[in-house]
């Protein structure tokens, strides 16, 4: 669950706050868990909801015009990503601005559609798409930067 908190939080302090708040809420609501589903899934939903409550207010709406699908993910960038550790990849995600990081986590990591994200975050579907595209662009730039160091090292 700390990994979930780390993905959604912008820094370690926030992640630790989320973990504490999440566990307190889990124990408060343990009796309501029906035991007919996954305890892990139930806990994860609680942690994600707490993270969303914390960051939802920080989301700024981007206009559709600013949406940028960006360039394709190249083999060179894929190689650079493979060379990175999970810890480094997680660090890249955490460096994303709040509004991009939330949409990226909800869409890529937790499998929500843009329609669902729009309802969860109370934003437009086009804003959700735009935020995801912007998040991916930032990630590619950082991976590109990383790949240059890999090339230099080779």
């Amino acid at each position: 669950m700390y990994g979930v908190c780390m993905r959604y939080a912008g820094n370690s302090f926030d992640a630790q706050d989320l973990l504490q708040d999440g566990f307190v809420k889990v124990f408060d609501n343990l009796k309501s868990f029906k035991w007919d589903g996954s305890l892990e899934g139930w806990m994860k939903r609680i942690f994600v909801n707490i993270a969303l409550d914390k960051y939802r207010s920080r989301i700024t709406t981007l206009s559709v015009d600013e949406m940028n699908e960006g360039e394709d993910f190249t083999d060179k960038e894929a190689t650079a990503l493979d060379a990175m550790s999970e810890k480094e990849i997680l660090a890249l995600v955490r460096q994303l601005p709040d509004q991009y990081r939330l949409v990226f986590n909800l869409y890529v990591m937790d499998g929500h559609s843009h329609n669902e994200i729009a309802k969860i975050l109370d934003i437009g579907v086009s804003t959700s798409r735009s935020n995801l595209a912007r998040a991916k662009t930032i990630l590619k730039e950082k991976i590109d930067y990383q790949s240059q160091w890999i090339e230099k090292a080779i």
């Binding site: 394709d72 993910f73 960038e77 894929a78 990503l81 493979d82 990849i89 995600v93 869409y107 890529v108 990591m109 991916k136 990630l139 590619k140």
Partner: peptide, 8 residues
């Protein structure tokens, strides 16, 4: 896409 799949 590939970037999303790899990170996921």
């Amino acid at each position: 896409d590939r970037l999303e799949k790899d990170i996921q």
